[in-house]
Amino acid sequence: MTITDTPTAPAPQASRRLTTSKAMVEAIAQEMERDPAVVYLGEDVGAYGGIFSSTTDLLARFGPERIIDTPISETAFIGLGIGAAVEGMRPIVELMFADFMGVCLDQIYNHMAKIHFESGGNVRVPMVLTTAVGGGYSDGAQHSQCLWGTFAHLPGMKVVVPSNPADAKGLMTSAIRDDNPVVYMFHKGVMGLAWMAKNARSVGDVPDGEHLVPIGKAAVARPGTDVTVVTLSLSVHHALDVAEKLSGEGVEVEVIDLRSLVPLEREAILTSVAKTGHLVVVDEDYLSFGLSGEVVATVTDHDPTMLKAPVHRVAVPDVPIPYAHGLEYAVLPRPDRIEAAIRRSLAL
Protein backbone atom coordinates (compact mmCIF):
# COMPACT_ATOMS: atom_id res chain seq x y z
CA MET A 1 0.00 0.00 0.00
CA THR A 2 1.22 3.44 -0.81
CA ILE A 3 0.34 6.32 1.43
CA THR A 4 0.45 8.91 -1.29
CA ASP A 5 -2.85 10.19 -2.63
CA THR A 6 -4.40 9.18 -5.89
CA PRO A 7 -4.34 11.84 -8.59
CA THR A 8 -7.25 14.14 -9.22
CA ALA A 9 -8.33 14.72 -12.81
CA PRO A 10 -8.35 18.39 -13.78
CA ALA A 11 -11.85 19.86 -13.74
CA PRO A 12 -13.02 22.59 -16.11
CA GLN A 13 -14.71 24.85 -13.57
CA ALA A 14 -13.22 27.98 -12.08
CA SER A 15 -12.48 26.27 -8.81
CA ARG A 16 -12.55 22.75 -7.45
CA ARG A 17 -12.32 21.20 -4.07
CA LEU A 18 -8.83 19.92 -3.48
CA THR A 19 -6.84 18.74 -0.54
CA THR A 20 -4.11 21.06 0.67
CA SER A 21 -1.46 18.72 -0.69
CA LYS A 22 -3.03 18.63 -4.14
CA ALA A 23 -3.34 22.40 -4.14
CA MET A 24 0.33 22.72 -3.24
CA VAL A 25 1.30 20.28 -5.98
CA GLU A 26 -0.86 22.13 -8.49
CA ALA A 27 1.01 25.36 -7.81
CA ILE A 28 4.37 23.62 -8.22
CA ALA A 29 3.27 22.02 -11.48
CA GLN A 30 1.93 25.26 -12.90
CA GLU A 31 5.13 27.11 -12.06
CA MET A 32 7.24 24.31 -13.51
CA GLU A 33 5.25 24.59 -16.74
CA ARG A 34 5.73 28.33 -16.72
CA ASP A 35 9.42 28.50 -15.79
CA PRO A 36 11.99 25.88 -16.82
CA ALA A 37 14.31 27.13 -14.05
CA VAL A 38 12.07 25.55 -11.40
CA VAL A 39 13.17 22.14 -10.12
CA TYR A 40 12.15 20.19 -6.99
CA LEU A 41 14.79 18.41 -4.94
CA GLY A 42 14.54 16.35 -1.80
CA GLU A 43 14.29 12.96 -0.20
CA ASP A 44 11.56 10.69 -1.60
CA VAL A 45 10.09 13.42 -3.77
CA GLY A 46 10.31 11.32 -6.93
CA ALA A 47 8.61 7.93 -7.20
CA TYR A 48 7.16 8.25 -3.71
CA GLY A 49 5.70 11.68 -4.39
CA GLY A 50 6.81 13.14 -1.09
CA ILE A 51 6.25 11.46 2.26
CA PHE A 52 3.46 13.97 2.90
CA SER A 53 2.27 14.14 -0.74
CA SER A 54 4.08 17.37 -1.57
CA THR A 55 5.08 16.13 -5.05
CA THR A 56 2.43 13.57 -5.98
CA ASP A 57 2.68 12.60 -9.67
CA LEU A 58 5.19 15.33 -10.48
CA LEU A 59 7.88 12.80 -11.43
CA ALA A 60 5.65 11.27 -14.08
CA ARG A 61 4.85 14.69 -15.45
CA PHE A 62 8.24 16.40 -15.36
CA GLY A 63 10.74 13.56 -15.23
CA PRO A 64 13.80 12.88 -13.11
CA GLU A 65 15.71 15.87 -14.47
CA ARG A 66 13.36 18.21 -12.64
CA ILE A 67 11.87 16.12 -9.83
CA ILE A 68 14.99 14.92 -8.15
CA ASP A 69 15.49 12.41 -5.38
CA THR A 70 18.54 13.31 -3.35
CA PRO A 71 20.84 11.36 -1.08
CA ILE A 72 20.09 11.76 2.64
CA SER A 73 22.53 14.66 2.72
CA GLU A 74 20.55 17.73 3.70
CA THR A 75 23.57 19.97 4.03
CA ALA A 76 24.73 19.06 0.53
CA PHE A 77 21.41 19.32 -1.25
CA ILE A 78 20.17 22.46 0.50
CA GLY A 79 23.53 24.03 -0.26
CA LEU A 80 23.12 22.82 -3.83
CA GLY A 81 19.81 24.64 -3.98
CA ILE A 82 21.52 27.82 -2.80
CA GLY A 83 24.24 27.64 -5.43
CA ALA A 84 21.73 26.84 -8.17
CA ALA A 85 19.57 29.78 -7.10
CA VAL A 86 22.57 32.09 -7.15
CA GLU A 87 23.16 30.99 -10.76
CA GLY A 88 19.63 31.83 -11.83
CA MET A 89 17.62 28.68 -11.19
CA ARG A 90 14.52 28.60 -8.96
CA PRO A 91 14.94 25.44 -6.94
CA ILE A 92 12.38 24.15 -4.49
CA VAL A 93 14.19 22.06 -1.90
CA GLU A 94 12.37 19.88 0.59
CA LEU A 95 13.57 19.27 4.11
CA MET A 96 11.43 16.27 4.94
CA PHE A 97 10.67 17.33 8.52
CA ALA A 98 11.41 20.74 10.02
CA ASP A 99 12.79 18.74 12.94
CA PHE A 100 15.71 17.80 10.66
CA MET A 101 16.96 21.38 10.56
CA GLY A 102 19.61 20.35 13.04
CA VAL A 103 21.61 18.49 10.40
CA CYS A 104 21.67 21.36 7.90
CA LEU A 105 20.93 24.61 9.69
CA ASP A 106 24.21 26.19 8.69
CA GLN A 107 23.29 26.16 5.01
CA ILE A 108 19.87 27.57 5.89
CA TYR A 109 20.65 30.42 8.24
CA ASN A 110 24.30 31.21 7.53
CA HIS A 111 24.12 30.86 3.75
CA MET A 112 20.63 30.83 2.23
CA ALA A 113 19.43 33.61 4.51
CA LYS A 114 22.55 35.79 4.62
CA ILE A 115 24.05 35.86 1.14
CA HIS A 116 21.79 38.63 -0.13
CA PHE A 117 22.64 40.80 2.85
CA GLU A 118 26.36 40.02 2.91
CA SER A 119 26.56 40.82 -0.78
CA GLY A 120 24.96 44.20 -0.23
CA GLY A 121 22.02 43.10 -2.36
CA ASN A 122 24.17 42.03 -5.30
CA VAL A 123 23.43 38.30 -5.08
CA ARG A 124 19.90 36.92 -4.89
CA VAL A 125 18.88 33.49 -3.64
CA PRO A 126 15.44 32.79 -5.12
CA MET A 127 14.71 29.39 -3.60
CA VAL A 128 11.90 27.77 -1.69
CA LEU A 129 12.62 25.50 1.25
CA THR A 130 9.57 23.33 1.87
CA THR A 131 9.25 21.44 5.10
CA ALA A 132 6.64 19.45 6.99
CA VAL A 133 5.75 20.51 10.52
CA GLY A 134 3.51 19.61 13.37
CA GLY A 135 2.34 16.76 15.55
CA GLY A 136 -0.82 15.07 16.65
CA TYR A 137 -0.10 11.55 15.40
CA SER A 138 2.37 10.22 17.99
CA ASP A 139 5.52 10.71 15.95
CA GLY A 140 7.50 11.67 19.04
CA ALA A 141 9.81 14.48 19.97
CA GLN A 142 11.97 14.48 16.81
CA HIS A 143 9.22 14.36 14.15
CA SER A 144 6.43 16.56 15.52
CA GLN A 145 7.79 20.05 16.01
CA CYS A 146 6.70 23.24 14.29
CA LEU A 147 9.85 25.32 14.88
CA TRP A 148 8.58 28.18 12.74
CA GLY A 149 9.55 30.58 15.48
CA THR A 150 13.15 29.47 15.10
CA PHE A 151 13.16 30.02 11.34
CA ALA A 152 11.34 33.34 11.70
CA HIS A 153 13.79 34.50 14.37
CA LEU A 154 16.75 34.22 12.01
CA PRO A 155 16.86 37.14 9.58
CA GLY A 156 16.94 36.81 5.83
CA MET A 157 14.32 34.24 5.00
CA LYS A 158 10.62 34.72 4.48
CA VAL A 159 8.45 32.21 6.31
CA VAL A 160 4.98 31.20 5.15
CA VAL A 161 2.64 28.70 6.79
CA PRO A 162 -0.54 27.97 4.82
CA SER A 163 -3.51 26.54 6.70
CA ASN A 164 -5.85 25.63 3.82
CA PRO A 165 -5.84 24.45 0.19
CA ALA A 166 -6.32 27.81 -1.51
CA ASP A 167 -3.58 29.46 0.51
CA ALA A 168 -1.32 26.46 -0.03
CA LYS A 169 -1.57 27.04 -3.76
CA GLY A 170 -1.38 30.81 -3.64
CA LEU A 171 1.52 31.00 -1.21
CA MET A 172 3.48 28.37 -3.13
CA THR A 173 3.10 30.32 -6.36
CA SER A 174 4.21 33.51 -4.63
CA ALA A 175 7.10 31.72 -2.92
CA ILE A 176 8.45 30.31 -6.18
CA ARG A 177 8.27 33.72 -7.87
CA ASP A 178 9.83 35.57 -4.92
CA ASP A 179 13.44 36.66 -5.36
CA ASN A 180 14.21 35.80 -1.73
CA PRO A 181 14.55 32.51 0.07
CA VAL A 182 11.11 31.47 1.31
CA VAL A 183 10.57 28.75 3.90
CA TYR A 184 7.23 27.09 3.15
CA MET A 185 6.04 25.13 6.19
CA PHE A 186 3.15 22.77 5.67
CA HIS A 187 1.44 21.06 8.58
CA LYS A 188 0.92 17.35 8.04
CA GLY A 189 -2.49 17.72 9.67
CA VAL A 190 -3.80 20.15 7.03
CA MET A 191 -2.55 18.28 3.97
CA GLY A 192 -5.65 16.11 3.71
CA LEU A 193 -3.71 12.87 3.86
CA ALA A 194 -5.75 9.68 3.71
CA TRP A 195 -3.65 8.09 6.40
CA MET A 196 -3.86 10.74 9.10
CA ALA A 197 -6.80 12.25 11.02
CA LYS A 198 -7.71 15.44 9.23
CA ASN A 199 -9.87 18.46 9.71
CA ALA A 200 -12.73 18.93 7.28
CA ARG A 201 -11.10 22.15 6.12
CA SER A 202 -8.10 20.31 4.72
CA VAL A 203 -10.27 19.97 1.60
CA GLY A 204 -11.49 23.21 0.10
CA ASP A 205 -12.14 25.33 -2.95
CA VAL A 206 -9.03 26.13 -4.91
CA PRO A 207 -9.00 28.56 -7.84
CA ASP A 208 -8.08 27.16 -11.21
CA GLY A 209 -5.19 28.60 -13.13
CA GLU A 210 -2.85 31.18 -11.74
CA HIS A 211 -3.50 31.94 -8.08
CA LEU A 212 -1.26 34.06 -5.91
CA VAL A 213 -1.58 34.87 -2.22
CA PRO A 214 0.72 37.73 -1.28
CA ILE A 215 3.45 36.88 1.21
CA GLY A 216 3.13 39.04 4.30
CA LYS A 217 -0.64 39.32 4.41
CA ALA A 218 -2.72 37.76 7.17
CA ALA A 219 -6.32 36.68 6.62
CA VAL A 220 -9.40 37.09 8.75
CA ALA A 221 -10.46 33.45 8.77
CA ARG A 222 -13.64 34.33 10.66
CA PRO A 223 -14.83 37.82 11.58
CA GLY A 224 -15.95 38.45 15.14
CA THR A 225 -16.38 41.21 17.68
CA ASP A 226 -15.69 39.83 21.15
CA VAL A 227 -12.23 38.27 21.19
CA THR A 228 -9.32 37.94 18.77
CA VAL A 229 -7.61 34.60 18.27
CA VAL A 230 -4.31 35.05 16.43
CA THR A 231 -3.03 31.77 15.11
CA LEU A 232 -1.77 29.86 12.08
CA SER A 233 -1.60 26.48 10.40
CA LEU A 234 -3.60 23.57 11.87
CA SER A 235 -4.52 25.66 14.90
CA VAL A 236 -6.62 27.87 12.62
CA HIS A 237 -8.95 24.94 12.13
CA HIS A 238 -9.19 24.23 15.83
CA ALA A 239 -9.86 27.91 16.48
CA LEU A 240 -12.59 27.96 13.85
CA ASP A 241 -14.20 24.88 15.39
CA VAL A 242 -14.23 26.60 18.78
CA ALA A 243 -15.53 29.83 17.25
CA GLU A 244 -18.45 27.98 15.69
CA LYS A 245 -19.28 26.40 19.00
CA LEU A 246 -19.09 29.64 20.97
CA SER A 247 -21.15 31.48 18.39
CA GLY A 248 -24.04 29.36 19.61
CA GLU A 249 -23.55 30.96 23.01
CA GLY A 250 -23.56 34.45 21.53
CA VAL A 251 -19.78 34.89 21.66
CA GLU A 252 -18.26 36.05 18.36
CA VAL A 253 -14.64 35.07 17.97
CA GLU A 254 -12.45 36.71 15.32
CA VAL A 255 -9.84 34.29 13.99
CA ILE A 256 -6.74 35.76 12.37
CA ASP A 257 -4.73 33.35 10.23
CA LEU A 258 -1.27 34.87 10.06
CA ARG A 259 -0.28 32.85 6.95
CA SER A 260 3.13 34.60 6.85
CA LEU A 261 5.46 34.99 9.82
CA VAL A 262 8.11 36.84 7.83
CA PRO A 263 7.02 39.42 6.97
CA LEU A 264 4.42 39.51 9.74
CA GLU A 265 1.37 41.66 9.11
CA ARG A 266 1.28 43.35 12.49
CA GLU A 267 -1.47 45.71 11.32
CA ALA A 268 -3.89 42.80 11.02
CA ILE A 269 -3.28 41.90 14.67
CA LEU A 270 -3.67 45.50 15.82
CA THR A 271 -6.79 46.11 13.77
CA SER A 272 -8.53 43.11 15.27
CA VAL A 273 -7.44 43.73 18.86
CA ALA A 274 -8.48 47.36 18.53
CA LYS A 275 -11.94 46.06 17.78
CA THR A 276 -12.22 43.27 20.37
CA GLY A 277 -9.88 44.31 23.20
CA HIS A 278 -9.29 40.63 23.97
CA LEU A 279 -6.41 38.58 22.65
CA VAL A 280 -5.73 34.85 22.64
CA VAL A 281 -2.67 33.58 20.78
CA VAL A 282 -2.64 29.97 19.67
CA ASP A 283 0.70 28.55 18.55
CA GLU A 284 1.71 24.91 18.08
CA ASP A 285 5.35 25.92 18.54
CA TYR A 286 6.98 26.15 21.98
CA LEU A 287 5.60 28.76 24.36
CA SER A 288 8.66 30.71 25.42
CA PHE A 289 10.81 33.04 23.31
CA GLY A 290 8.67 32.54 20.24
CA LEU A 291 5.75 33.56 18.06
CA SER A 292 3.16 33.93 20.80
CA GLY A 293 5.33 36.41 22.68
CA GLU A 294 5.98 38.29 19.45
CA VAL A 295 2.26 38.68 18.80
CA VAL A 296 1.67 39.98 22.30
CA ALA A 297 4.59 42.40 22.02
CA THR A 298 3.12 43.67 18.76
CA VAL A 299 0.12 44.85 20.74
CA THR A 300 1.89 46.09 23.86
CA ASP A 301 4.58 47.90 21.86
CA HIS A 302 1.81 49.74 20.04
CA ASP A 303 -0.67 50.49 22.82
CA PRO A 304 -1.16 48.24 25.86
CA THR A 305 -4.38 50.03 26.71
CA MET A 306 -5.98 48.33 23.72
CA LEU A 307 -6.28 45.25 25.92
CA LYS A 308 -9.29 45.02 28.20
CA ALA A 309 -8.04 41.80 29.78
CA PRO A 310 -4.77 39.90 30.16
CA VAL A 311 -3.58 38.04 27.07
CA HIS A 312 -3.80 34.26 27.05
CA ARG A 313 -1.33 32.12 25.17
CA VAL A 314 -2.05 28.54 24.13
CA ALA A 315 1.19 26.88 23.01
CA VAL A 316 3.38 23.86 23.69
CA PRO A 317 4.48 24.39 27.29
CA ASP A 318 8.25 24.20 26.76
CA VAL A 319 8.41 20.43 26.74
CA PRO A 320 9.49 18.11 23.92
CA ILE A 321 6.48 16.63 22.13
CA PRO A 322 5.59 13.40 23.99
CA TYR A 323 4.92 10.12 22.24
CA ALA A 324 1.92 8.67 24.12
CA HIS A 325 -1.31 9.97 22.64
CA GLY A 326 -2.74 11.34 25.87
CA LEU A 327 0.51 13.07 26.76
CA GLU A 328 0.86 14.58 23.29
CA TYR A 329 -2.67 15.91 23.24
CA ALA A 330 -2.13 17.40 26.69
CA VAL A 331 0.59 19.72 25.34
CA LEU A 332 -0.75 20.50 21.84
CA PRO A 333 -3.09 23.49 21.40
CA ARG A 334 -6.20 21.39 21.05
CA PRO A 335 -9.72 22.89 20.88
CA ASP A 336 -10.38 22.32 24.58
CA ARG A 337 -7.39 24.44 25.57
CA ILE A 338 -8.30 27.13 23.05
CA GLU A 339 -11.87 27.27 24.31
CA ALA A 340 -10.72 27.50 27.90
CA ALA A 341 -8.38 30.38 27.05
CA ILE A 342 -11.15 32.28 25.30
CA ARG A 343 -13.45 31.80 28.26
CA ARG A 344 -10.75 33.06 30.63
CA SER A 345 -10.14 36.06 28.42
CA LEU A 346 -13.84 36.93 28.45
CA ALA A 347 -14.36 35.86 32.08
CA LEU A 348 -17.10 33.50 30.92
Binding site: T75, A76, F77, I78, G79, L80, G81, I82, G83, A84, A85, V86, E87, G88, M89, P91, Q107, H111
Partner: peptide, 10 residues
Protein backbone atom coordinates in the same frame (compact mmCIF):
# COMPACT_ATOMS: atom_id res chain seq x y z
CA UNK B 1 31.39 23.09 -0.65
CA UNK B 2 27.59 22.61 -0.94
CA UNK B 3 26.84 25.89 -2.74
CA UNK B 4 29.52 24.99 -5.29
CA UNK B 5 27.52 21.86 -6.06
CA UNK B 6 24.57 24.05 -6.94
CA UNK B 7 26.58 26.29 -9.21
CA UNK B 8 27.93 23.20 -10.94
CA UNK B 9 24.39 21.80 -11.13
CA UNK B 10 23.19 25.00 -12.82
Amino acid sequence: YPPALGQAFA
